[in-house]
Structure formats: structure tokens, C-alpha cells
Design a protein around this nucleic acid. Sequence first.
RNA 1: GCGGACGUGGCGAAAUUGGUAGACGCACGGGACUUAAAAUCCCUCGCCCUCAGGGUGUGCGGGUUCGAGUCCCGCCGUCCGCACCA
Length: 850
Amino acid sequence: MASRFNALKADAAWQKVWDDRATFAADDTSTKPRSYVLEMFPYPSGKIHMGHVRNYTMGDVLARYRRMTGMEVLHPMGWDAFGMPAENAAMEKHVHPGGWTRDNIATMKAQLKRLGFALDWSRELATCEPEYYGHEQALFLDLFAAGLVYRKESSVNWDPVDMTVLANEQVIDGRGWRSGALVERRKLSQWFLKITDFADELLEGLDGLEHWPDKVKLMQENWIGRSQGLQFRFKLSDGGAVEVFTTRPDTIFGASFVAVAADHPIAQALAAENPAAAEFIALCKRGGTTAAELDTQEKLGFDTGITAAHPFDPAWQLPVYIANFVLMEYGTGAVFGVPAHDQRDLDFARKYDLPVRRVVSDGDVTDPVFEGNEAATGPGTLVNSHFLDGMDVEDAKRTVIARAEGEGWGTGSTVFRLRDWGVSRQRYWGTPIPIIHCDACGAVAVPKDQLPVVLPEDVSFDIPGNPLDRHPTWKHVACPSCGGQARRETDTLDTFVDSSWYFIRFASQPKDKPFDRAVAEQWLPVAQYIGGVEHAILHLLYARFWTRALKHIGLLDVAEPFAGLFTQGMVTHETYSRQITELGSDGVDSITKPLWLSLDDIVRNGDGWTEKATGEAVTVGRVEKMSKSKKNTVDPTGIVDQYGADATRWFMLSDSPSERDLPWSESGIEGSWRFIQRLWRLFDGERAGEGGSKNAALDRKLHQSIAGIALDIEALSFNKAVAKLYELTAAIERAEPSASRDAAIATLMRLVAPMAPHLAEEAWAAAGNQGLIADAPWPKVDAALLVEDEVTIAVQVNGKLRDTLTLPKGHPSDAVEAAALASDKIVRILEGKAPRKVIVVPDRLVNIVA
RNA sequence: GCGGACGUGGCGAAAUUGGUAGACGCACGGGACUUAAAAUCCCUCGCCCUCAGGGUGUGCGGGUUCGAGUCCCGCCGUCCGCACCA
């Protein structure tokens, strides 16, 4: 007699069995085909959230499925454990960042285990432990030795009250998010990694990443931002020269001014002797950098009085401006303006009444006088341009570059938007940069036998500033080179460095070095990497860079770290709020804003909701990403305790496609729970026993399901796999007892095993099988059963469905046509008239054109 | 502003190369079982009409085709990324 599936008991029992037997430990020496399945490792912020559950469930299903297909699967888990939240917690709660982080790891590890993920916990790592970051320091020094690390002055957001550096997102309206103090730009000497050395490779490597989403590749492409053009010199009237970069050398005869950035040496030199210039430069720097401000900001210039000689006509002198729209960080920090064919230049020229000369014609108009306020940026034919006249834009570009190179005043060049990666952070909770500063010897690498440089634990956060900097002894060391008094670097590494190689350490983790090359290369690249799209640029680009840098210095022969990438959608939920009115920041006007309410704060009231505390009506808002600020989170712990791990996992996979957002709903998780129970009733029910009859239709349905589900799982289309499982389950339930039905039930256990592993193990054991279903092979498909012997053929008249026919597969076309024309419905519709044309698509449809 | 994605029932969604739109799930409604409830099972479920039938329907307007959710052109809307990039 069928019982109820006791998820709580089964979950714990099978999790213990998997643990005890180390079922999911990956074997480095295996001869099976390998697959490395990885989800982006979590930051140990406190507790896991639904987004983690969804992410790790997807990877888990793929990992378990691939194990069943006979692969040796590496599926590890660890902790991206350095970062600011730990320091914030230290300040707010007066705890140690290390203690706080390690407590969180313990909590979250227990939560992940509770979900029964098929993880190789023997490879667990936390980036905050010296056993990890010591090796990172060694790799940093290798890159340093190879010339890929350098030091330069760079400005940071400095909070003068907290005495700390702020990330851009911590600066709100020009003030520190915590202190509220006006943020200053401060120049600090910082460490950089030469990612720009790899800009071309990183860009071109994208082409080979067939199993990456186009969207992510495009984002990286734009981020790297390669532009090809001409870099050349204008001779100036004061005897100097200015280098400019352009992607439109073809428009050179349309030039009407030269503009330099406020930070440009020419501008700076002028400011030193000209107060008006200095004032203009100060004005440029005052402007905000937010999107809205840039959009509305007027193009402003300051005429330096200097002129530049046109390279093709020294008598033609162009005015040189300092302009607020020219960026020192891009190209050469100077441009020449062609108003007719660049919108920004046109705005500028109209404001300062500069010539606007047409040099590209997109049709009949060749008049050198360009009217209107909309620049012509499209393709066309060169006009009013001497030797370029009549050429198309691309030809003209090549011609000008060739002339410039021939005459020695310019070169064809490539400019990237990508900047070098600044890795210095003026923070405690990160990997110490293994460098010692000596007045005599400069920046000296810590000798490798002195690694790891361990973070001191005896620090406090009671007063502002970097605790490493004010630690009484830590930074005072002898210079490894000359033995004199020296200082340790007190900056730590950006946490993106930690996550740029953790996947290599998972693959191989010897004690004495970062990784064993041969072992790591057996696993890499990661076959399938799964995570949020928010990491589309920085993390994924840095990891690609780091891997290439290791290849460059001969440590690892892998070019791309992640062969397959999947970006999953978020878990979303309705939001609930009621409007409240409070005094605005000016202390006079009152403002109305939503007060967000959690599900615990509200109660159902007919079709709507009311707030428990006040009884006031609650507005149901948009479905949004679960977040603490909107109070629309659902804690996975409570859900798993109530419904069990399998129902929770099942819901994460059902309904929505993996790449799209998944709206959380109470009825959805209940539906999943009901299905888990329904499966259990089937598994635990009566069997017909041996010798029962065959059921050909069910056999066919089963084998079609096996094949389809396998394809769906490989494509991470779990919602489709789930739908097929529902269909198969319903078909089995409907079928009369038979040997076919028994076989289908036994096979169904294995089909659901990757998704509902606890239920599957319980059923597998109850059915008297030996061993674990986790180790059982994926069912074999009988290819003969995949083809239907009968097909339903649609009969259309003028493309409209009028009837269907059931005929044997492969029925001759003329016979199908005859059958269609003989149909009662078709005869009635045609009213005896002969069809003009009949189209027969074999085994699919007949379309009669009347 | 530039680049990209997406628009299908009350909701989440399916639909292999253009070939039966809405599989599967959720919700709603009806029924069975029960003293009752829970659980379970069955049925209906895009919209409209004159309902054993017919019309209409994949954001809107055109087009190509025997045939368009799918291809092309033009709009509208939503979301994401980048942002004075020369």
C-alpha cells in the first residue's frame, strides 16, 4: 500500500550515505571522459538565498546527469570569502571579519548540504585562508617577475571621515555612503595588472567561445572596445605639436578645430600662465559624471589662441581649444573636430561659430556648406577633399593612413577602451600584496619561501582607517634585498583576483604550489560554468585574462578557462507596500513613498492583502528580484524544512526557462511537492510482476522521454525536461498493469534522479536495487522506438486547418492527397469544385488551394 | 544617444529547418470519494457567436509565401548593457 514520502527523513539519510561513501568525490586518476561542472562560488554573506538554490540546482542536475552517462565529473564548491561586507560587519557589530566570515561559511555550508547537492566537498576552499591566498601571492609574484604587474599613481574616492577608499557604488551624490562626508579625489600609488597587453587576444578569443551566450560576448567586446584609426601629429603655432587619434582619417579635409582635454599637458601648461584657462579647467572638472548630467551637459570650449597646421596644407590653421568633452584617459587626450560628420563636433562648432564643411556625401548633395544641426555620420562618397574625392569612406581611410605613414607624420593604430586592472585596495580583509617597500631598493618581492604573507588577526575596527596600516608591528620588516629597514605593502588585492583562478585550484590543490599543471590541465577548461549575468564583464574578463597570463608565463597550457557559460535568471517575487508620508530632507515638504512589507507583515483579505499591524490595505507591486530592501525575500531554509529538498529543487527547475527570471510562488512550490508525492505513489505502488503483457505505446513514450530529457538537460532546458517527466508520469499512471508499465516505473526513477535525488534513492532502495541510483547508468534509448509508426496529418484548405487524418508513417503522397480529398469535411467545403493546387508535406500535412 | 534582448491565455510557458498555436504547470470553475475536512481522482478552461457547427487569435501596421508565433520592412512597448570613446 502506497505511503507518503517522508522527505525530511529521506533527505538526511541519503545525504549521510553520499557523505560517508564520498560518492561525489572526483577522481584525478580516472580514465573516464571528464566533465568539469562549476557554479560561481558564493560570497559568504550570512545565509543562502533562493538565487543560490536555483544556481546550484541547475549545476547539480547537469553534474548528476553527466555522472550517470559515465563521465568523471568534477563539481566543487568553495567560498569567495574576502570582501567589504565582512569589514562593515566588523564595524557595526564589533566582531572580527574572519570570525564573522567563517561563521557564515559554516551556516551556508550546512544549508547547501541540506539541499543534497552532488558536490566534492573534499576540495572545498575559502579564499580568506592562507592555504589559498598564499598561493595567490605566489602567482602574483610570478606575474610581477614577468613584467605584468606595475605601479602607478591613480586617483581614488577618499572618504576623509572614515579615512578609507570607497568603491564608485559607495559614493552617493558625491558623499560617502556611511559617513555622509564629501568625497575627495586622492592620488595614490597603486598596483596594476597589464590586462591591456592581452586586449587583442581577449577580444579575438571570444570568437572561439561557441558555448557562451552572444549577449555576454558582445558585452565583453564593447568593454574591450577596440577602435582602429590613425594617430597623427599637428604642428602648433607655438612651436610644439599635439598628437590626436581618429577613427575617421577620411574626413581630414573637414576639420575645423583641434580640442584637448582639461588634463592635457597643453591645457595644463596654459593654465599655469593664464588664469582664465585655469578657471575653465576647474569648471570642466566640476561637472558630474552621471549619465543624466552628461546627457544634458553643454559642450564647452576655451580658445587657447594656439593654432594647428593642417597636415596636408600648412597654410590652413585650425584653432586649438580646451574642451570639456575630451577625455584624457582615452586615445591621446586630443581630437580634431569634423563638425559635418560628428554630432558632438557639430554641437561644438555651432556654439563657437566654426566652419562646418561637408566632405562625405550620401547622395547628390555635395555643397561644402553643411546646413542643419544633425551630423551626417553614415557611409558615402568623399567630396571637397582633393585627392580623396570620389572614394568611399573605407578607401579614403586607407589612403590617408598610407599617406601619413609615407610622409612620417602619423601611423595607423588601434586604441582600446579597456584599461589596465587596478588591483590595490586600501582595506584589511583581502589578500596582502606580497611586496616590501625599501627606500634603497624600491618595491621588492617577498621571497617565495616567506609566503604566505599572513593577515594579522589582532586588529581592531574601532577607529577609522586601514587596520593594517596602523598595526604596531606588521608592516615593519627588513628589506629582503639589502636587509635595511623597510615597510610591508599594506594594500590588499581586489577580490576579483581571488575569483580569477579558484577554478584552477579546485582542479588541483597541492600544498606546495598553486596547482599541479598536469592535473589541472586534465580537468580544464570548465565544461559548463553557471552564474548570474551580473558577472558578464568583470569576473569573466579577469578570469580569462588571468588564465591567459598564466599561459603566457608558462604555468598552464589553457587559453580559455570556461568552455561553456550559462547565465541564469533571477528568482523574483511580488512586492507588497503601503504608502506612507514623511517629512522630506528639506524638513519642510512632506513626501509620499512606499513602505515595503514582508509576507510576514501582511495577511490575506479576500482578493487583496492588509497589513497585520495596522489593518491598512496593502498594494501588490511589481514582481522583482528578491531583495532585503524590498522585503520580498523567501528564506530557503523554511521552504526546505517544510517541503523537503527535492520539491524545492524541482520548483527551481520547473516552469521558467533557466535563463529567464523565475517568479516564486507558494502555489508553485506546493505543486512541486504534490508531484514528488505523486511520483512516490507510483514508485511505492503495486507491480504487475514478471510475465505481464507488453504495452507498445507506453514503451514508445518511455524511450522518447529518455532521449528528449537527455537533450533538454544537456541544453539546460530544465523546464522542458520537467514537462516531459509530467507527461511520462501521466502516461504511466493511465496505463493498465503490464511488464511495460513496471519497466517504465523503474526507468522513471533514473530519469528523475538528477532532479529529485533523495526520492530516487529511496525508491531505488525500496525496489530492492543494489548500490546507489546516483551511480546507476542513465537509461539506454532503443532507437527503434523513437519513430512513430502512425502520424497525424493536418488537412488545410487555403492554409486553414479543416481536418486531420491518422495514417501510417511514410504513406505515399498521392494516397495521402486522395485520402484528404475524400474527407467528408473537405468534400463539403470544396462544394464539388476541383482544387487549384494541392501541396503535400510528407507525414505532416496536406494544403488544398481552392 | 549607442548597442542588445524580448513582447504568445488570468499567470509561468511550449511550438527541431516556415507546416495542426497554446504541450506541461499554476490559478479559477464543475464533479466523484467523505458525516465533514484534508488528501486523491475525473472534467472544463484563448476570445466571440446563432455552440454536434462556425468565426477569430501569438504587441500594432504592411509585405513575401500554398502556408508566418517563426522570414522581411515600418511603428509601439518593456527590460538589460555601455555612455561625451574621437
